[in-house]
Design a protein around this nucleic acid. Structure first.
Length: 514
DNA sequence: AGCAGACCACCCATAGCCTG
DNA sequence: CAGGCTATGGGTGGTCTGCT
């Protein structure tokens, strides 16, 4: 629905996990340890292009980091450039990691670019027969996973085993991406951090501009608002919209400004992300300011805020100071999350935004988010917001039915999502996750399964939010995807009973404060 | 073929050092 | 002291493999 209804699961992105990227953890990725016969030196060119005699020989040592743990030797990083032996074109930057001894060996580099040695034509020159196998193996960029040419390392002394690891960053990727050491991840070659587009780095910082806040176990609060009746005129509304925009903005960049997407999807650069997605603002934004209430509809907003916490503050969070079994279902939403009625809480970080549209007569509930907790389960957090929406809806039904017994309302029974996130292949991945893990199904299948249900319940015109989403331009011109899930008949009592059971259970995050 | 357990890669989360 | 930076342990989900 929103460019990120739930966090798309890029971790399973096929292009980067294919067998083509053999991690070969036991040694240099482009090199074999079998050094039969040893290469004759004239078959290999030096590390630097011939035009630059000063840098012939050993690569430059760019960085030496000391392991601070006792008993571990120092790990050093050498950096050198691979040039094509034939046309001298710059192919890739090579990062060599290992201990001092591992790096202080004599070796040669031999590479040819894919133009001079195209795939399938690698053995056309007379040298092939004499060359050790490793210099014929493909040079694959560790960032984009594309073959950049062929080549590798060879020890000058055939008895020497090259034990350092090599990370390959091709010319294009070394211009386009930088590694954020605080964004998690790492590579088989020992590099730490996630590759992100360079536009989100400042100066020479090794961490990107995105938030690296750790939210797990923080005190949180969740509040539900009626967007059309409770928000207009609120003095802090602009700040709230700003916070949502900023959260969405960072989320889009975090998801899309990575090689997995920029190298293989229809959006190729940071500028394109900005122009095609970020400049449109978060989906549904117009509903916050330019939308009059519609009879028979409720447009609800659930905001989750995490309390700021100093990094060195090791004290018990507030939620951990009361026992699970003592938490009232009216005061608490989840083990660490209180129910709140503050629109823009001080000293807090917005970390979850869900919007739901309840169509009273149709008994449908459309739900979506501008982003998701990146590392918490889809089920957990979406369930809290969903539960709060339902709580509010069921309470309103109860009140209405008490005062208007002649016109009874019934709880929503069809939960649906309208998704138009980009690019399309990532959207399909997300939809697949929602179907598999949360039991949604494509609208057509839903209508077949429940023959009494009308198609008109789930269209762009069925909800203000669906229309707002549908009106957005899709980068690859695909129609909005609609999925539906049957939620059954909900009762206030059932909801509260379920919640009480969940709240009473001790949470694993509690253990660390004991 | 279908399933369960083992294994592995990936990525999160955090401790601790360092610098300004 | 706050925040930048790095190394490392652990959790998770996916894949492989051997058994039924």
């Amino acid at each position: 629905m929103f460019p990120d209804f739930f966090a798309p699961d890029t971790s399973t992105f096929p292009s980067l996990t294919s067998a083509a990227s053999d991690p070969s953890p036991s040694g240099p990725s482009t090199s074999s340890h079998v050094d039969a016969g040893g290469p004759s030196d004239q078959l290999f060119v030096s590390l630097a292009p011939p035009s630059d005699p000063s840098s012939l020989g050993k690569p430059r040592r760019t960085q030496v980091s000391n392991s601070r743990k006792k008993g571990k030797g120092t790990r050093a990083v050498d950096e050198c450039d691979a040039f094509c032996a034939q046309c001298h074109k710059f192919i890739a930057k090579l990062l060599l990691r290992g201990s001092q001894e591992e790096l202080d060996v004599s070796y040669d580099l031999y590479h040819r670019c894919s133009t001079c040695a195209p795939l399938g034509h690698g053995s056309s020159t007379r040298k092939r027969a004499n060359e050790p196998d490793d210099t014929a193996s493909p040079t694959i960029c560790d960032v984009c996973n594309r073959i950049q040419g062929f080549g590798g390392f060879n020890a000058k002394d055939s008895r020497t085993i090259l034990a350092f690891s090599v990370e390959v960053v091709c010319a294009s990727c070394s211009n386009k991406y930088r590694r954020c050491t605080n964004c998690g991840g790492g590579s088989a070659r020992g590099g730490i951090g996630k590759w992100r587009c360079k536009e989100i780095f400042e100066d020479d910082r090794k961490t990107c501009r995105l938030s690296h806040e750790r939210l797990g176990g923080r005190d949180m609060e969740l509040a539900v608002w009626d967007i059309l009746t409770e928000l207009p005129g609120r003095q802090d509304l602009p700040q709230v919209i700003g916070a949502i925009e900023s959260l969405w903005h960072d989320h889009v960049i975090a998801r899309m400004g990575v090689p997995e997407v920029l190298e293989y999807q229809s959006v190729r650069t940071y500028e394109e992300i900005k122009a095609k997605i970020l400049d449109l603002h978060f989906p549904g934004r117009s509903l916050f300011t330019n939308q009059a209430p519609v009879p028979g509809r409720r447009l609800l907003l659930a905001l989750t805020w995490a309390k700021m916490r100093a990094r060195r503050d090791k004290s018990k969070p507030l939620w951990a100071q009361s026992r699970p079994q003592d938490k009232s279902i009216h005061e608490w939403v989840a083990y660490n999350t209180r129910r709140s009625n503050v629109l823009y809480p001080a000293n807090s970080l917005l970390c979850g935004v869900w919007i739901a549209e309840w169509n009273i007569a149709d008994r449908t509930l459309l739900m979506g988010t501008v982003c998701m907790f990146d590392y918490l389960d889809v089920e957990d957090r979406s369930a809290y917001s969903f539960e709060e929406f339902m709580q509010r809806i069921l309470c309103e039904i109860k009140e209405h039915n008490a005062s208007h017994p002649e016109d009874p309302w019934h709880p929503p029974e069809h939960l649906w999502a309208a998704i138009k996130s980009n690019p399309y292949s990532l959207r399909m991945r997300l939809v697949e996750t929602l179907e598999r893990r949360l039991g949604f199904m494509p609208v057509q299948e839903y209508l077949t399964r429940y023959p009494g249900v009308k198609r008109e319940l789930f269209t762009a015109d069925s909800a203000l939010l669906a229309k707002a989403i549908n009106d957005r331009v899709s980068v690859d011109n695909k129609d909005m995807t609609i999925i539906v899930k049957y939620v059954g008949v909900s009762t206030l009592e059932g909801l509260e009973r379920k919640k009480a059971v969940r709240l009473a259970k001790p949470h694993k995050a509690e253990a660390k404060y004991d």
